[in-house]
Nucleic acid binder design. Structure first.
Lengths: 204, 204
DNA sequence: GTCTATAGAAGGATAGAC
DNA sequence: GTCTATCCTTCTATAGAC
């Protein structure tokens, strides 16, 4: 039987992740103090150092685990689709929107706090980010090869699509004008336009 | 005749703008100290307060003047085009890319430091930003009205296009694989795809 | 596992000499 | 217009009691 002599360490560790994610996203890494985080967790500042060696590592761990979850989730999700590039791209777009809208704070941090990482930590995150971009590039490349996509530049199309999809996070609000499903549909249409695969006009 | 008793105030004022822009972009507003800025300018920290009442106002002035220059520049530039929505959109895309690539640091700040503005300052910048988005929305609306653009949602298309164009700033490097003119061409192609006006495929 | 207390450094901003 | 000096606050991180 597990030892539980009054300790609440695991819960505190979880609470720390949650509090730090929320506060870093809201105010920025540099603007948030360990005391603020501690107050949000409900402990004193000193107690945080049982769970992280320092503030920098706290940020890094948040970003790395977020990116890893993203990569793992797509790894699983992509298994649901056939090899058809169009189906894969649709799957990717819907997956990206849904995943990112579910983790607004972590996504925000992953995009905004890169410059606050130490050099070594930065390159780890940059590699994960590139791995994710490669997932999309692979799909686009296959589509161009199969003649169903029409693209001038593979790399720039990758950047464009990820930028426009991730941009959703800056304006989307639950209970807003559009629900998530509608947003997916509209963006899918625009992405298909980017890759030269828009079949709406002159449908014959 | 102007009084110039050994004063270098105007130059220092300019240097302060430049130094703050560079350092805020590089490390983030919250992470940069007034002492660092002063060192970059080449004066002592106290001297900065001759040019700004406080750090917050320094940030706000940078952002506001950047956004105002953007709006003014498009006001001028847009006069160069006829009423043809396609020509206007091409003009906007090329203008946006060129303007933003010329001011990487100021653009970065305008996108990253919104959360470090006081409430009142934030709403000023938010209004300027919306004014800029409206410039694009107007073009898209005219194009839809004229039947040359095919869009599911005007607002989301506006967000998408601005997000993908501004994303260029995160990867573009002078002397990189592509020059600015080529980038403009490639993005123009993708934007035309987004608005359902891509005439490359099945060109008949 | 958490607290209190604190060391030691750095921050924004001001006062007064020059 | 700028400098030096400094006030006062806040920060990260650690030490030791419980």
């Amino acid at each position: 039987m597990a030892r539980k002599t009054g300790s609440s360490g695991e819960k505190t560790a979880r609470d720390l992740q949650i509090a730090a994610t929320k506060l870093f996203a809201r105010h920025g890494y540099a603007a948030v103090s360990m005391r603020q985080i501690a107050a949000e967790v409900g402990v004193q500042a000193g107690a945080l150092y049982l769970y992280t060696p320092d503030k920098q590592t706290l940020l890094f761990d948040l970003m790395r685990s977020h990116m890893q979850e993203l990569l793992d989730a797509w790894e699983v999700e992509s298994g649901n689709f056939s090899d058809d590039p169009k189906a894969l791209l649709e799957g990717f777009v819907r997956f990206h929107i849904r995943f990112h809208l579910k983790r607004v704070d972590a996504v925000f941090i992953a995009y905004m706090e890169l410059r606050n990482l130490s050099d070594q930590n930065f390159s780890t995150i940059a590699n994960q980010r590139q791995a994710y971009e490669n997932c999309l590039s692979k799909i686009l490349k296959a589509g161009v090869g199969a003649g169903v996509f029409d693209l001038v530049d593979l790399k720039l199309a990758t950047f464009s699509i990820i930028a426009m999809l991730t941009g959703i996070n800056t304006w989307f609000r639950d209970r807003g004008r559009l629900d998530s499903e509608t947003v997916e549909h509209i963006y899918l249409d625009m992405v298909m336009g980017v890759v030269g695969c828009k079949s709406r006009r002159r449908p014959d």
